[in-house]
Design a binder for these strands. Structure first.
Lengths: 262, 262
DNA sequence: AAGTGGTCTAGACCACAAC
DNA sequence: TTGTGGTCTAGACCACTTG
């Protein structure tokens, strides 16, 4: 039984005539959304599991089903939960996505990603280091804090296509090994959920065109004058907490980065 | 007074027991959405104008306000209309976007796009040609059909940053001149709305890293070994009809392409 | 048959903008 | 004061899934 900031029989935003700035106000369904979010964040329901039914949540929060519904609508729009008619509402997970890689927008020019199958992974490096200024800033850490750094190559149909450098906060990802990164079947983000309880919910990418240095070119088996996509990604858990910095170099001779605008 | 495929007092999907495949069924609010979309498409309400109030539409379609509301909710989510509390619901337009360029995701590395101000445009070329196979496929035309082709350079703070080639269906854009492309104040897509009645509603982009040829390098005042972002965009009007093919070459030494994932 | 999400309605009230 | 979109409720019924 949770207590609401503003309960249903204790209407929100009573609009005092004090004349000062509007007090922090949010509609009921936003408050409900916040409470559900809190439960998600605290792990009350695990990825892939069903959350309580709308009627149950309505009773628990003492609001109507319609209000819970609108809260869940927004959570579903943000891909935090998934609704399935007749079954229930489920916590999103990177493990059972209809598309294999939720955050990877690189597609083969030949259209169909399914024919490629999953990428082959080769982990080149995985070790604990101290964060430099750039990494620290991206992950909201202090310079010198412990981070786990990894480098790996993803190949499609045997062709090395992506070279990735990954930085993870040392605290949350204590004990991460190269074997885990290499051998886990399925998306790496699913492994993060399962082994570390870290769910990536959102990400931002900055994309540039670059030329590889000698080492990068060698790893991707290309010449140093092959232009590459540099994709710098920061992935966030709940509450906009950054939990991963990833810098990918994508070959785009047989693949392209696809984006939809509206 | 429109007649609905399934009226409110003539319940949809009576679920015949014929045992064959489910007949085409869509909920009432989807039908309403379709009707509103049709009016938008036919220009019953122009970009920037208000559409009728929810109550009016509810009366017109003989459904409840809540049903109209849900239809408009989806249209708003797709950026086809914009709601403004207390004022009404307005047809989206590229002219008065809160961000100046709705489809341009290139931002200065220094964060704030506003300090740059609008881009300086220099039109290099604008002429009618016949569509080759690639252009024809992208625009759903036949090879040899008339298209208007243009090339221009966008500069920020005096630095040539984007080289764009644009292809437009000749029929819809009859009479387009270099002067229009160069002199119109505001987004080019706003000019398309105003002068040609063509509203771009959605777009898809394929992004690659490339090296410029001699001519491209000269126009952008860079060396031919400067890697560039190649952004191939197809923009669509209503009903997924492609109305523009655009290929941009972006310098990414001082700017980056920004994308958000969820 | 029971339980879930999905749709639709009707009515009340709130917040915002314009007159 | 009026009209708009925004919130909230309560109840009915539909569609899908499971037992």
């Amino acid at each position: 039984m949770s207590s609401l900031p503003f309960a249903a029989d204790n209407p929100a935003a009573p609009q005092g005539t004090a004349g000062v700035a509007t007090p922090a106000f949010s509609p009921l369904y936003q408050q409900i959304k916040g409470l559900i979010l809190q439960s998600l964040q605290q792990g009350e329901w695990k990825p892939g599991e069903a959350i309580p039914s709308e009627m149950e949540l309505a009773a628990r929060f003492r609001v109507s089903q319609g209000t819970v519904r609108k809260a869940i609508d927004e959570l579903a729009a943000e891909n935090l939960v998934m609704r399935r008619q007749g079954k229930g509402t489920f916590v999103s997970t990177h493990a059972e996505q209809h598309v294999q890689y939720r955050f990877l927008k690189l597609l083969p020019d030949t259209g169909d990603a399914r024919v490629e199958g999953p990428a082959q992974r080769r982990v080149i490096d995985c070790r604990r280091v101290r964060a430099n200024a750039d990494v620290a800033r991206a992950l909201a850490l202090r310079s010198g804090d412990a981070v786990t750094q990894a480098r790996r190559i993803l190949s499609f149909a045997g062709v090395p296509t992506i070279l990735e450098d990954i930085w993870l906060p040392g605290q949350a990802f204590k004990g991460l090994t190269a074997e885990q990164l290499a051998n886990y079947q399925g998306p790496t983000y699913a492994m993060f959920e399962l082994d570390f309880g870290v769910r990536m919910v959102r990400a931002e990418e900055k994309i540039r065109a670059v030329l590889p240095d000698e080492e990068q070119a060698q790893l991707l088996q290309i010449t140093p004058v092959t232009p590459l996509l540099s994709v710098e990604r920061i992935a966030y858990t709940y509450n906009d907490v950054p939990m991963e910095l990833r810098r990918g170099l994508y070959r785009t001779d047989t693949h392209h980065y696809r984006n939809e605008l509206s």
